[in-house]
């Protein structure tokens, strides 16, 4: 075993930490909606914020992606795809919402 090869416990801790965080970030918004704890507008912002956080938790602990890497191409691929997606999805929602408003 080479030295980079580590200990199983450290790896396992990564997954368990990720799972615990993801679980908390899932339970909070479900509780919020289940028991109607906040007005709709507030609840939607909280749900969106927690969803983004949970996405980051999954990327960090399940996909093992972080920002300190020698291999940058993969990260660039991911970030570029997100940019394209933001433009296409954001543009679609923007234009269609605008259109709906004008026709309404």
């Amino acid at each position: 075993m080479s030295d980079e090869h580590s200990d199983f416990r450290a790896d396992l801790r990564q997954y368990l930490t990720g799972f615990a965080l993801a679980l908390a970030l899932t339970l909070i918004p479900f509780a919020l909606v289940w028991w109607n704890l906040a007005p709709r507008a507030v609840a939607l912002w909280i749900i969106a914020g927690l969803a983004i956080l949970q996405g980051i938790v999954h990327l960090r602990y399940f996909f093992h992606i972080d920002l300190s890497r020698q291999k940058r191409e993969d990260l660039q691929l991911i970030l570029f795809s997100l940019l394209i997606l933001a433009m296409m999805a954001g543009g679609t929602i923007w234009i269609m919402a605008n259109l709906a408003q004008r026709m309404g």
Binding site: S2, E4, H64, D66, R69, Q70, K71, D74, L75, I78
Partner: peptide, 17 residues
């Protein structure tokens, strides 16, 4: 550790593979 000598995003197997 998972963090060292990453070749790609995702779990890396390690040199002994």
């Amino acid at each position: 550790m998972i963090r060292q000598t990453m070749r790609h995003p995702g779990l890396n197997l390690g040199r002994d593979h």
